[in-house]
Design a protein around this nucleic acid. Structure first.
Lengths: 221, 221
DNA sequence: GAGTTAATGTACGAACCAGTACGTTAGTCA
DNA sequence: TGACTAACGTACTGGTTCGTACATTAACTC
């Protein structure tokens, strides 16, 4: 009954700290995203790895720090994606639209990340505050927006008074809401915001919205 | 929200089922909003009322049903607010802007409700699905949007191809994100989206965005 | 190839927590 | 006024869950 015959370590390394840590992070990401911080179970996370609960405490210290590590890695992924942004060869209008579309795509492709951010907000962003790494990650996307915005405003294509952080918030709002609130929105209004056949519609809607806002003639004040 | 502000009548009834239930709901709303569904403690909710845990089970059946009851009441409040909407005497542009502003205000004034909705989405809207009451509440706001939109489109002020549910999603996105994600956004970008001195700025931004979108000339396709 | 340490597994405990068995009292009405 | 019932309180339980003490082994160093 014992002997689920493991190949008695012929050449492969049984002990691999990096692999064990990565596996724990993978599983923990799924579990935290699925059930929330308090809903997730350390025992359950351990059971879904090839190692034991002991290793979670050995490498991460505890549930709280594990969640922080999960967040750090998740934010690292989007930072990397943002660093690969390549839209500045386009004219400002096309560049902003493209940037919005890539943001849209990234949100759609990483629902677990969206859920983690929701969860972290429920907890007042205390883990981000406690993390040295997360405190100081800038947003490459923000720099890109800043430059496109400046170019568009200089050429007179965009209205002058739009701030990059605000625009980022506007774009993120739409992308985030569509994924994060799809369950309640679907239940209450009978429309699945993430339905595949609606994808292009909402992607275009976001671009239209942002461009309309940036190019609209604002009432002088 | 029907809060319990009853001045503990000296010779009056000690036993008051309605008051006890309302008090439990008040406290539960705060606790669930504060800590999430799994983070909230039934004992803690009971301790913060003038009654005991026994009464929670007596009136609501369990934690799950209590949370559903909290959601039902919270959604009831916004439905009531939406029924008091009075913007249709305005021209379509002003009416939509006003509607967006009122949505903005309501989100700002009910952060607990926003948190409950976030929490419910983490749990896949399963409580809404299980609730008979919540399944069938329409949105009065949606009807208002529909009518304003139709008027605006008929008069040629608005572009023809905008759907009411989509517009509602757009407006809600911005309002929701600003409140729900203020912690992570603030921690990462150093900007408090809910800072009082930024309130008018973001309120105007929302209105500008929606009006720009509705009145923009879309590229024909 | 002996010693050292990083990595891993096992078993357990103490606190916590949702839910309940059972007893009590206030208010009502015949 | 006495019986009945809705409303309420106390005390407990059984299972869960985070965390840890202790044992063990793989792999590296010299």
């Amino acid at each position: 009954m014992t002997s689920v015959d493991e190949p008695a370590r012929p050449n492969g390394r049984i002990r691999d700290a990096a692999r064990t840590q990565a596996e724990i992070l993978d599983v923990a990401t799924r579990e935290f995203a699925r059930a929330g911080y308090d809903g997730a179970r350390v025992d359950e996370i351990a059971a879904r790895t090839r190692t034991t609960k002991r290793m979670i405490y050995y490498y991460f210290g505890g549930k709280e720090q594990l969640f922080t590590a999960v967040l750090e890695r998740a934010y690292g992924v989007i930072r990397e994606a943002e660093q690969r942004l390549d839209v500045e060869h386009l004219d400002p209008v096309a560049a902003i639209r493209r940037l919005a579309e890539l943001t849209f795509d990234h949100h759609e492709q990483h629902p677990d990340f969206i859920r983690l951010v929701s969860i972290e907000n429920i907890h007042g962003a205390e883990h981000i505050a406690a993390s040295e790494r997360l405190g100081k990650i800038g947003s490459p996307a923000l720099d890109v927006i800043r430059r496109i915005l400046a170019a568009g405003q200089e050429s007179g294509l965009f209205t002058a008074d739009v701030d990059a952080v605000d625009l980022h918030a506007m774009i993120s709002s739409f992308c985030f809401f569509r994924v994060a609130n799809r369950h309640t929105f679907g239940a209450l209004f009978g429309r699945d915001l993430v339905a595949p056949d609606q994808r292009e519609h909402y992607r275009a809607m976001l671009g239209d919205m942002v461009i309309a806002y940036l190019t609209a003639e604002r009432a002088a004040d």
